[in-house]
Simulated scan of single mutants.
Amino acid sequence: MEVIDIIKPENQVFSKTCLMTDATLSYCPGCGHGTAHNLVMEVIDELGIVEDTIGVAPVGCSVLAYDFMNVDITQAAHGRAPALATAISRTWPNKYIFTYQGDGDLAAIGTAETIHACNRGENIVIIFVNNGIYGMTGGQMAPTTLPGMRTSTSPHGREIETMGSPLKITELIANLPGTYYVTRQSVHTHKHVRKAKKAIKNAFNNTRLKKGLSFIEIVSNCNSGWKMNPNESNNWMEENMFPYFPLGDIKVKGKLKQKS
């Protein structure tokens, strides 16, 4: 853990902890995961809850979180992070527990664990990165893949008639009584980064107040999986992902804010 000494004007010395490790980020250039990681660590640092925070990372790109986040993190089987987070939270109810998951993990193999943890209102934070594709394992179609979007398993585009519609998992769980705070953000511009950080801080404060489950979706790009450069992927995300997955708060203080 890197500690940076800062000299205050009155010559008093205090320490600021950097909660990102020194490991070089291994995500594809332009990926939103690195920014999302930084935001989570900044919030934990600013709230002064480092020693009381435990993260859960499952399978997929998100499994790399424990290489970069300098807090206690354990790994869960594919899709099972909310179940493991439930166990940890109930064992140590005064800790701050968060999961960090991708769309293939959370909304496909982990659908049951996600739905039931949210329905029970577990006092945890779920951070859900949605890039509409299985980024780590070959660019396969995910539950959140858009209509007509090409992937390695939908080379001619997602056909609604045979493959179903994209799953708006965030709107779905917002309607469950156990969820207290549900929001959808992004991290591709400075303005959106600030909003995402505010949302993450709200979520951890909800844990402190024992309000129940906070769910934060971060719509991100996957420029390598989408076969685009970073700028192209950000533009494509704005033009195609945001209309289907609109940004903003969906549920605040247990009350729905927008139609689901």
Results as ranks from 00 to 15, higher is better:
residue 71 V to W: 08
residue 48 G to M: 06
residue 26 S to P: 05
residue 177 P to D: 01
residue 94 N to T: 07
residue 127 I to S: 09
residue 258 Q to K: 15
residue 36 A to N: 08
residue 61 C to D: 12
residue 247 L to D: 01
residue 4 I to K: 15
residue 28 C to G: 05
residue 20 M to E: 01
residue 4 I to L: 15
residue 232 E to F: 12
residue 24 T to K: 15
residue 15 S to G: 04
residue 219 V to I: 15
residue 12 Q to Y: 14
residue 90 R to I: 07
residue 75 Q to W: 05
residue 149 M to P: 05
residue 144 T to N: 01
residue 6 I to C: 04
residue 223 N to Q: 15
residue 145 T to L: 09
residue 172 L to I: 15
residue 183 T to P: 05
residue 117 A to K: 02
residue 120 R to L: 12
residue 176 L to R: 03
residue 156 H to D: 09
residue 26 S to H: 10
residue 21 T to C: 03
residue 68 F to Y: 15
residue 37 H to G: 00
residue 124 I to S: 07
residue 52 D to V: 06
residue 161 E to P: 00
residue 29 P to Y: 10
residue 143 P to F: 03
residue 38 N to T: 04
residue 56 V to Y: 11
residue 260 S to V: 14
residue 75 Q to S: 11
residue 248 G to W: 02
residue 239 E to D: 11
residue 102 G to R: 01
residue 35 T to Y: 08
residue 22 D to M: 14
residue 60 G to Q: 07
residue 150 R to C: 13
residue 112 A to G: 15
residue 119 N to C: 08
residue 201 K to G: 01
residue 70 N to T: 03
residue 173 I to V: 15
residue 106 L to D: 12
residue 3 V to L: 12
residue 33 H to P: 04
residue 11 N to M: 09
residue 91 T to I: 10
residue 231 N to I: 14
residue 54 I to A: 09
residue 154 S to L: 07
residue 108 A to D: 13
residue 161 E to D: 14
residue 214 S to L: 02
residue 118 C to P: 03
residue 25 L to I: 12
residue 234 N to Q: 09
residue 207 T to S: 10
residue 217 E to R: 14
residue 173 I to S: 03
residue 236 W to G: 07
residue 58 P to L: 01
residue 213 L to I: 13
residue 258 Q to D: 07
residue 20 M to C: 02
residue 180 Y to K: 08
residue 45 D to K: 13
residue 152 S to D: 04
residue 195 K to I: 14
residue 233 S to Y: 04
residue 41 M to I: 03
residue 221 N to M: 06
residue 39 L to Q: 13
residue 154 S to Y: 06
residue 243 P to N: 08
residue 230 P to H: 06
residue 183 T to A: 13
residue 3 V to K: 13
residue 193 V to H: 05
residue 129 V to Q: 07
residue 99 T to Q: 01
residue 142 A to I: 00
residue 5 D to N: 14
residue 240 N to S: 09
residue 233 S to W: 07
residue 229 N to V: 12
residue 182 V to I: 02
residue 110 G to H: 11
residue 153 T to D: 02
residue 33 H to K: 06
residue 236 W to P: 08
residue 135 G to V: 05
residue 200 I to C: 10
residue 156 H to Q: 08
residue 224 S to D: 12
residue 167 L to R: 11
residue 178 G to W: 11
residue 143 P to E: 12
residue 16 K to T: 00
residue 10 E to V: 03
residue 102 G to Q: 10
residue 183 T to F: 00
residue 228 M to E: 12
residue 105 D to A: 01
residue 97 I to T: 03
residue 174 A to V: 12
residue 133 I to R: 04
